[in-house]
């Protein structure tokens, strides 16, 4: 591990000051991703700003009737929070489908959004990787890419964002609150992560001086009909090959609103509002779900080992929507 200095921030402004004080500074929250990457020299921060003592560890009501998740609330506390469980069960399920109990106890909601890809090559500093070292090339495109993306890829990188939580947040249309040198701004979750393009080294639209302070959930939580379906190579402790966060608002048999977000297929949680809209005012049938599924994989591209994800994603979308539909609506 490269030598680094360490400081503990006492408030948000101080955290922002500290992180801009030196090039190569990084925040550390739960450390479950950052420390792993530091040990293998993939991340080499020169200065660590510990934000775990900031007062960002509560879940509160928002004026709009939603919930605000402090950036430092742990994944476990979020998933098991009574209001989250009641009003946003999709989010609880997504979180609990990820990692392990021990990791979720340490991992924070802010850190979860900023976890880095699990691409094999990104983890091995002896191999070329544009995300890790821009300009060295992408080993995965012609190498082993079973876990990697089929949508929104570029010739420079086909990595996926591995978070489960973010997929549910995308479906729920959550927003991310961030604070930087120029004050606070709000980024819709769906615009938070970016596509790799020709700068795959940059995962998100968060600026280097910005800290996530909270994630806001809008009032509508689709608590009656939802599914988080995660398909993976073993039953637990594995990242998604494909995951689907699906939510339905149904009146009788007619869909009022549908949400579908995919994980494991792109550099960001994948949502196509126009495809969701195909269901609006239509009966909630397998045939109609199939249409949505087809629309989601329009333009999808496999790289060999991951070709199967195209078909799998379609089937997963249909299954998730059917499951959501078939849920006993809560009275």
């Amino acid at each position: 591990m490269k030598n680094f200095t360490y400081t503990r921030a006492n408030d948000v402004a101080n955290a922002v000051d500290e992180v801009t004080s030196e090039k190569g500074s990084k925040f550390i929250a739960g450390g479950t991703n950052l420390l792993d990457l530091m040990k293998i020299q993939v991340e080499r921060p020169s200065h660590l700003v510990d934000i775990t003592r900031l007062a960002l560890d509560t879940i509160e009501e928002t004026a709009e009737g939603g919930l605000r998740l402090g950036a430092l609330v742990t994944n476990a506390d979020t998933a098991y929070h009574e209001e989250v469980g009641k009003r946003y069960p999709l989010l609880s399920h997504a979180i609990l489908a990820g990692a392990t109990a021990q990791l979720r106890n340490m991992a924070t909601d802010g850190g979860n959004l900023l976890q880095r890809t699990r691409c094999y090559y990104f983890y091995d500093t002896d191999t070329p990787c544009n995300k890790r070292e821009p300009g060295t090339g992408c080993s995965a495109i012609k190498g082993y890419n079973r876990d990697l993306a089929i949508l929104g890829t570029s010739e420079h990188c086909i990595a996926t964002h591995p978070s489960d939580m973010a997929v549910a947040l995308a479906a729920l249309e959550a927003t991310v609150r961030v604070t930087g040198k120029n004050g606070e701004r709000i980024i819709p979750l769906f615009e938070f992560h970016r596509l790799p393009g020709d700068t795959p080294n940059i995962d998100t639209n968060l600026k280097p001086d910005e800290i996530i302070t909270a994630i806001d959930l809008p009032a509508k939580g689709f608590a009656d009909r939802y599914t988080y379906l995660k398909l993976r190579d073993r039953a637990s402790y594995a990242f998604a090959l494909v995951s689907v966060a699906a939510a339905l608002d149904i009146d009788g048999d007619t869909v009022k609103e549908a949400r579908v977000a995919l994980g494991g297929v792109a550099h960001k949680p994948w949502r196509i509002p126009e495809a969701e809209a195909l269901l609006k005012g239509k009966p909630a049938t397998r045939e109609n779900f199939q249409k949505v599924a087809e629309a989601y994989v329009q333009g999808a591209k496999g790289y060999g080992h991951n070709d199967f994800k195209i078909e799998l994603a379609k089937r997963a979308i249909v299954r998730a929507l059917l499951q959501a539909k078939e849920m006993e609506a809560r009275s």
Binding site: R118, Y120, D124, T127, Y144, R146, R234, A235, S236, Y237
Partner: peptide, 25 residues
């Protein structure tokens, strides 16, 4: 254990990527 023939290297060299059964399996 996945061999990348371009690099001549086993690539899934940790227990996150090399899967063995977990209790849930």
């Amino acid at each position: 254990t996945v061999m990348d023939n371009n690099l001549g290297r086993f690539m899934n060299h940790d227990l996150d990527k090399y899967h063995i059964p977990v209790n849930a399996d």
